[in-house]
Design a protein around this nucleic acid. Structure first.
Length: 171
DNA sequence: GCCAACGTTGGC
DNA sequence: GCCAACGTTGGC
């Protein structure tokens, strides 16, 4: 049997940050098919996650940054794996990057589909109170990374705090 | 609004 | 390749 270099099919869990004035969970809820491209990532470490690690079916916490209340507002699922972020090629886009060559795109995006908006947001305050979520990457001082890996324990703990069941196929 | 922390740029 | 200067992020 030949070994393959492909990723294992094990689902991964992530946290994606967004400023709600730019793109909130309500924007996603109102989008066609509740699906939208996660565009505008302009950081290499985050780009590498989108390019190399985020897979269709991975599940994601939607985190609102910058505007109160800060916290996790719900969940989404990856509907399309990494592909070139076309906003980088559009001079009218606020994410335009003249140095991203369409023949060799610098920035990547994925498509996300809403799983659910939580009845109430899980605020930073609540995350700080729980021993599992208190140590999440997003809680660390100075952590600016907008695409972050999340452990299954953390994924479960956030759902426990939200008083909602895990998506049926979480494991 | 402040400012610490961080990532990127560019002169050398 | 170093690192100071700069711009941005994002909690507070």
């Amino acid at each position: 049997m030949k070994k393959t270099a492909a990723h294992s099919s094990a689902r991964r869990y992530w946290l994606f940050k967004s400023e709600p004035s730019a793109f909130s969970i309500d924007h996603l809820a109102k989008a066609s098919k509740q699906t939208a491209p996660w565009d505008g990532v302009r950081n290499y470490q985050a780009r590498n996650f989108l390019r190399d690690d985020v897979q269709v079916g991975d599940q994601v916490l939607f985190y609102h940054s910058r505007e109160e209340p800060l916290g996790v507002f719900g969940t989404m699922q990856i509907a399309r794996a990494g592909y070139p972020d076309f906003t980088a090629f559009d001079p009218k886009s606020k994410y335009y990057d003249a140095s991203s060559d369409p023949d060799n795109p610098r920035w990547m995006m994925v498509d996300v589909k809403l799983i659910q908006k939580f009845p109430e947001p899980i605020t930073r305050e609540m995350l700080a109170q729980d021993t599992t979520t208190a140590s999440m990457l997003v809680m660390k001082r100075g952590m600016r990374l907008s695409i972050q890996p999340v452990t299954f324990d953390e994924w479960k703990a956030v759902h426990r705090l939200a008083h909602v069941p895990l998506p049926a196929d979480s494991r």
